[in-house]
């Protein structure tokens, strides 16, 4: 995509995403932080649309906004006193160090990658991705599925107790 509209959209999305990401950091209320995070996710999805990767943009919204953000919301709502008394901690130093280290790694990766800048089909449509996942990357794809299934079974095993298990067995006299 090109044209003045795309440039305007790029800067609007950049400001939106950066402000939202800043809001995640400075917000004292954890629930506000999650909502800022959702806005940042939506901004990133907008960048994918600008890069002509509609399917990845939609997947970004389905997975990050629809599933992961909801999961984080649940975690926060179930945490007592998560919305207040969040003052400075001693962990701020290590956190800044970690952030700088991560940013450095990312900058090196971005600098060293040979980005495709010319025109042409980037191969990001849904059928391209599906074909790649089931031919070139079929082993990592299958391993990821097995990992997710194992995580699912493990989570169910963790939260089940003996009492609940006996409750589900139908009684002889029922």
């Amino acid at each position: 995509m090109e044209g003045a509209g795309v440039n305007i959209a790029f800067y609007v999305l950049s400001i939106l995403t950066l402000v939202a990401a800043g809001g995640v950091m400075v917000s004292r209320n954890l629930l506000h932080a999650v909502l800022f995070l959702i806005v940042a996710f939506i901004g990133v999805a907008g960048f994918f649309v600008l890069l002509s990767a509609e399917f990845i943009a939609m997947a970004q919204i389905v997975i990050y906004v629809g599933a992961i953000a909801v999961l984080i919301l649940f975690a926060i709502v179930l945490t007592p006193r998560s919305v207040r008394d969040n003052s400075e901690t001693a962990m701020v130093g290590p956190a800044i160090l970690l952030g700088v280290a991560l940013a450095t790694v990312f900058l090196f990766v971005i600098h060293d990658t040979g980005w495709m800048t010319g025109a042409g089909d980037p191969g990001l449509s849904a059928s391209d991705l599906g074909r790649a996942l089931l031919s070139t990357w079929v082993l990592p794809f299958e391993i990821a599925s097995v990992l997710l299934t194992a995580a699912l079974v493990g989570a169910i095993m963790l939260v089940r107790s003996e009492a609940e298990e006996s409750e589900d067995v139908p009684d002889a006299d029922a």
């Binding site: 509609e54 939609m58 906004v65 629809g66 849904a126």
Partner: peptide
């Protein structure tokens, strides 16, 4: 005419749930 219009519909129809959650919280 989005090539992935069906996914678009699923993605966007998941957003009001978040709004309802915000309303309730």
């Amino acid at each position: 005419d989005v090539p992935a219009g069906l996914i678009f519909f699923i993605a966007v129809s998941g957003l009001p749930v978040l709004a309802a959650f915000i309303a309730g919280w």
